Computed example of a mutant assay.
Amino acid sequence: MNIRNLLSSALIGAVASARAMTPMATIAAARRFGRRTPGELMLLDRPLFKYGAMAMGLGEMAGDKMKTAPDRTVPLGLMARVASAGIAGAALAPKGKETAGAAVAVATAVPLAYLTLAGRKRAMARIGQTRSGLIEDALILAAGTAIVALATAPNAPSTDTKARLR
């Protein structure tokens, strides 16, 4: 298998390093707007999980600005990154390569969490927690959205839709 086949999985793992819930939230939003992932992903097709993932993504971005927000490298934060990166990495991997996609995403997310935390701490020292968080949010949301948009495809119209279009 060509490593480029798992590039989307690695990139979504990088997104998870900075915002644990953004990978699942962007994939859930893409599924909500009629896009399909290359890999199998039944979990986020269920409304509870789909809307829950999107809400958690927004909640994480809001909570990140709080003074009491824990570092992303605490055990619970790393576990969230492993879960989110694994699910998203599997979904963006080619069909039949979901396990490899999950592994690549997790292997990217965990070490990069330490690097993105170091960068965020430097930014916080210069421009403050809220401003640095908003900038990081914008960059990570844009990256996650772009990765998912490029890795997914529109769902094929149903035969009813095709008939109506004629």
Rank of each mutant, 00 (worst) to 15 (best):
R4K: 14
L6K: 05
L7I: 06
L11A: 09
L11E: 03
I12Y: 01
G13V: 04
A18D: 04
R19W: 06
P23W: 07
T26S: 15
I27L: 13
A29W: 09
R31V: 07
R31S: 02
R31N: 03
R32K: 11
F33H: 08
G34S: 12
R36W: 06
T37D: 04
M42C: 03
D45G: 15
D45W: 11
R46T: 11
L48N: 05
K50C: 07
K50M: 10
M56R: 01
E60V: 03
A62T: 11
K65R: 09
M66V: 01
M66H: 11
T68A: 14
T73C: 10
L78H: 02
L78W: 02
A80V: 00
A85R: 01
A85V: 01
G89W: 01
L92S: 04
L92F: 05
K95E: 13
G101D: 04
V104E: 02
T108F: 07
P111V: 07
P111I: 05
A113E: 04
A113T: 12
Y114T: 02
Y114E: 02
L115A: 15
T116R: 04
A118G: 12
R122D: 09
A123D: 04
A123T: 02
A125S: 15
R131E: 08
L134T: 02
D137M: 12
D137S: 15
A138C: 11
A143S: 15
A143N: 09
G144Y: 05
I147V: 15
V148F: 06
L150I: 11
A153V: 13
A156S: 14
D160M: 13
D160T: 14
K162W: 10
A163Y: 06
L165W: 08
